[in-house]
Amino acid sequence: MNLAAGVQIVSFGLLAAIILVGALGVVLLPNIVFAAFLLGLVFIGMAGQYLLLNADFVAAAQVLIYVGAVNVLILFAIMLVNKKEDFTPLPRAWVRRGATALVCLGLFALMGTTIASTPWALDPAPTVSSSVATIGAHFFSDFLLPFELVSVLLLAALIGAVVLARRDYLPTVKEQETVFSLPERPRELITSDSK
C-alpha cells in the first residue's frame, strides 16, 4: 500500500486503540449485547489492520465472515439464550481474577521481551501486487489438500450444528389427534328458498 509512513503510523495507532478498547469492553462489560457489538467493532478494526498489511482479500473476507456471519451468529445466540440470570457470586472470585490477571500480564511481558529480542529476518522485497491471484495459486497447488479438508470440515460442522441444536421430541409422548379447522366466520348456506 502506498501510504506515507506517518499516515501508516497514525492509522495503526487509531486501529490498535479501537481494537484494544473494544476487546477490553468485550471482556469487562456486564451487558453482553454491548459486548457482542464491541466484538464487531474489534473485527472491523482487524480488517483495517489487514489493509495496512497489504492484504485486501483477507480484509474483505474478515468483514464478510467475522462481522457478517460470526458476529450475527453470536447475536442470535444471545437472543435465543435471553435469560436474565444473576450469577451467584463465587466465594473466592477475586483470587481467580487476580491470578488470571497476573498470569496474563506475565504472558504479555514474556511475549513482549521475546518479540523485542528476536532478530527478525525481514525480507525487503516488495509485496506481490495481486494477493488474490497468489492466494488462489496456493490454494490449488501446494495447499490443495488442506483446502479440500476444510471444505469437508465445513460440511461436517454444518451438519453437526443442525444435529446439536435441533429440538428432540421424546418418542414416548403420543401426539394427540388434532382437528384442523379454519378460523372462518359462520356463513349462511345457500339454499334454494333464500332467494
Binding site: 483477507v58 465472515i65 476444510v150 470440515l153 465445513l154 460442522a157
Partner: peptide, 27 residues
C-alpha cells in the same frame, strides 16, 4: 507481510483459520 512478501503463505493460513473459526462458532 514482513517476512514472506513474495509467497504470501501467511494469508493462506489466515483464510484457513477464519474458516475454522466460523465452523467453531457454529458448533
Amino acid at each position: 507481510n514482513f517476512l514472506d512478501p513474495q509467497e504470501i503463505r501467511g494469508q493462506v493460513f489466515t483464510v484457513f483459520v477464519i474458516t475454522i473459526a466460523a465452523a467453531e462458532a457454529a458448533v
